[in-house]
Structure formats: structure tokens, C-alpha cells
Amino acid sequence: MDAAPTSKSDGGSFRSVFRDGLFAGQVMIVTGGGSGIGRCTAHELCHLGARLALIGRKKEKLDAVAAELRADNARADVDVFACDIREEEAVRAAVAAIVKRFGRIDGLVNNAGGQFPAPLSQISQKGWDAVVRNNLTGGFLMARECYTQWMADHGGAIVNIVADMWGGMPNMGHSGAARAGMVNFTETAAVEWAPSGVRVNAVAPGWIASSGIDTYPDWMTPVIRGMKREVPLQRLGTESEVSAAIVFLLSPAAAFITGDCLRVDGAVPNARRNYELPKHDRSQPWNGFHRATTPNVLREE
């Protein structure tokens, strides 16, 4: 069965598995907060009492999510900061503005990123650099500025969103290299920043029924629709399942977890060519996001 969400809701409340008020008074930054996993995570963190700073390149998308958050929660304290995370000075200024606006930074969800499908032989240096700057350099800059401007003296938690890149990423080699680099950065930062009380972890989503899959070209449509057959759980994941992993790593329950990478992928990297995956519908998805929608590419099956 598919894990794709159903219809959109114009209000209501996120159904989180975590206790109410978990992040009351805490300030969380979510990059790439204008869509997909970032949007879902912002909703869950807000539901749990966090004050939110949303970062992205397109202010109108951030404003739309902020409006949703305020519509769903009268107590929502959210602000938006348009910023290209690939630009060092822009990142430095955005983090400074967040500290000025909220007075603290407790957590960073390093979610912003992007890529395009292409074989390695057809990726130009410009295309390679753009993806690596998006998925590696930008995450480094955000983490470094949050650390130097606040967390070094006060502690905090950072969750870097990477990807299911184990065993290579054919047709996404630029992204795979960048994501692997971010995992290594996560492991290094966890050691260097531990004396400041800063935990650094990563979450690696697999194939998720998120709005991002609607951005790929038409030739990817049959590939996307057939992906669930390559997953041992025989479905795609939901945005809520990724958000729950992020929230866990930000929470006190993960106080002794740092330098780790939590896969949310239905065991795809563990599947082997010599083992035929049985078809089944036994895996029940978790979808607590009341505003989730089914990606268009999955609606026409």
C-alpha cells in the first residue's frame, strides 16, 4: 500500500506522537521550511510549542507556511528569513537576525537542499557545484553560524537532513557525494562541538511521498511510481515519518545520541538483488500531518 497522504486540510492540529509542550519556549530554525519535509517538520515543532525561524530562498513560500502555522495555532511564534544558504554573508546575517529576534537558538534543522537527475557524464562543473553548495556547503555554513553565534556558549542540537546514498546514487551522483560529505561533517562536528553541549546528528530519508518528487522531469514518473516495489516495506514513506525522526533527535530523549545518522528508508539499502522482495501491505504508514497532500506524480497511478 502507498504511504501517500490523502487530502489537504485548511486547519486543525498536527497529530504528533510526542508530548505536548515538548519544546515550549525553545527556538528552532528550519531551513527549506517552505515546502515538503521542512514544512511538515515546522508544523510539528510548532505544535509542540517551539518558536520558529523559517529559512528559504523564496519568501512567499515561507510566508505561506507561516500563515498556516498561525491559522492552526493562535500561540504560534514564527518568523521568516529569506536567505540563500549557499552565500556565507547572507547566512551570517540571517543567523544574527534570528538571535536578535528570538534571543536564542536551541535547535537547527538543516533541511534545505536540492538536486536534479543526470548521469555523471552529463553533469557540468556548474551543475555539480550548485548541488554541492546546496547540499553540503550551505548546511555547513548554517551549522557553523548557529554554533559560533549562539550554541558554542549555550548548547543546542543540530539535525542535518541528508539522503539514502549508501551504495551510490546513480543519476544523482552530485547529490550523493554532497550528502556523504554532510554525514562526515556530522560525525566530525559531533566530536568538536561536544564540549559546548551541542549534539549533531543526521536523518537520511529514503523515498518519501513529499512534494519534492513533483519537481522531477516527466521521464522520472515511471521510476517514481515503481519505487515502492524496491522497498522491503513495499511503500513510500511519509513526511510525518521523517519529521518524527527529526523531532526525536532534537528532543531530550536523544541526549546521549550524537554523531549518528538515522535512516528513514524502509530498509532499501539492505535489500539484495538475490532476494526477491515479497509483495505485501502489512506496513502501516504514520501520517500525523493534517495538511499533507498526495504528490501529483502519485495520484495518477
Rank of each mutant, 00 (worst) to 15 (best):
N201S: 02
A204E: 03
A76E: 05
V109A: 11
L62R: 04
A244C: 04
R19A: 05
R133N: 15
R86W: 01
R282I: 02
T188H: 05
L45T: 01
H47Y: 09
D84E: 12
R235L: 12
G181W: 04
N110E: 04
I55G: 04
A190C: 08
G138I: 06
M220T: 14
T137P: 02
N110A: 08
K100R: 14
G34E: 04
N110C: 07
G103T: 10
T258Y: 08
W193M: 06
T148L: 15
Q149P: 07
P5M: 06
M172R: 09
P195A: 00
T41Q: 05
M142N: 12
D260H: 14
G206M: 11
C46R: 13
I37N: 09
A189Q: 00
G21E: 12
R101G: 07
N184H: 12
W150F: 15
R273A: 13
I161K: 09
T238R: 04
E230P: 00
R75P: 00
N184E: 10
D84I: 11
W207M: 14
A178T: 00
I105T: 10
I257T: 15
C261L: 13
V297M: 08
M227W: 13
C261I: 11
W150N: 12
I213E: 07
A255T: 11
G11K: 04
A202I: 09
R225V: 07
G176L: 10
G25S: 03
H154A: 11
K8S: 03
E301P: 13
